[in-house]
């Protein structure tokens, strides 16, 4: 028995089964699917959603918007960190803005944004605004990890630019940037869908969640939540694969698994 639990996958599966079991017991104790849908009801609801066109079109709508906002935040966050790390004045200038962006609730952003932009673009803007300070902070931290003595060495040797980028800059800063991007991916999904629930853009996952809540379709609400978790996990996994590849390129070895 102990030997079986040596495998990480078995341990993960056992932990998941424990919590699903607890969920099932809780649902049976409550006895009302409107208040708490059981795992079985949730899975059945999800299965019933799978063949529907609007299920996939909603996923595509939200996926497109949230990833668009996310990657925009990644690019601008990295660029901003690269520029402000060299210019202390600019860093001081942006510090209060990014601190404010970290503290402002998603709902405040959404309500303010709805005045300016149509609700169908909301998930792009909100995921961008929430992810940007996270990426910026992670990239700045990564830049601080770069060994300045190696930069001096590279300058004296006239080390080719691509080698500097690969062996000195990327190898030192990638771990921090990777952590920030992983954290940002989860936040992008949370904030993006929250924005959709408030703004109710037609054809989004947020709208489906909202309607499920209005019609007290709790199993469907849970099924959509499961879908969001799966999408977020899938995006994180793809991100990790990309990072493994980049890290292999930068260091010549695979990224450490966490």
């Amino acid at each position: 028995m102990r030997a079986i639990f040596q495998h990480r996958a078995v341990r993960h599966l056992a932990a998941a089964l424990f919590w699903i079991g607890l969920w099932q017991v809780a649902a049976m104790s409550v006895g009302q699917r409107i208040l708490l849908a059981s795992p079985i009801e949730t899975i059945l609801s999800l299965i019933s959603l799978l063949p529907r066109f609007d299920f996939w079109s909603s996923i595509l709508f939200s996926l497109r918007g949230i990833l668009c906002g996310y990657w925009l935040a990644v690019m601008i966050g990295l660029l901003l960190a690269a520029v402000t790390s060299r210019q202390k004045v600019l860093m001081e200038l942006f510090r209060p803005l990014l601190a404010a962006m970290r503290s402002v609730p998603v709902a405040s952003f959404v309500i303010a944004a709805l005045i300016w932009i149509p609700s169908k673009r909301l998930n792009i803007l909100i995921s961008f605004l929430i992810v940007l300070p996270v990426i910026y902070a992670g990239a700045l931290d990564g830049i601080r990890q770069i060994d300045t003595s190696l930069i001096e060495m590279a300058r004296i040797f006239h080390m080719p630019f691509l080698n500097r980028l690969r062996y000195i800059v990327l190898s030192a800063s990638l771990p921090s940037i990777h952590s920030a991007m992983r954290l940002g991916m989860g936040l992008a999904w949370k904030s993006g869908v929250a924005a959709e629930v408030i703004g109710i853009p037609t054809g989004s996952i947020g709208e489906r969640l909202y309607r499920a809540k209005v019609y007290l379709a709790t199993p469907e609400l849970f099924a959509w939540t499961l879908t969001i978790i799966a999408l977020s996990a899938l995006c994180e996994r793809i991100l990790s694969l990309i990072f493994n590849w980049v890290q292999r390129f930068a260091l010549g070895r695979s990224a450490q698994r966490d």
Binding site: S149, L150, E152, A154, I156, M159, Y167, G252, R253
Partner: peptide, 23 residues
Amino acid sequence: IGCMFQEDRLLHAASAYTNLQCV
């Protein structure tokens, strides 16, 4: 300039070959 510092200033995660080739 070919330089050897007081400290090694090598790319510690990289191989000897990479350290010599990268400059």
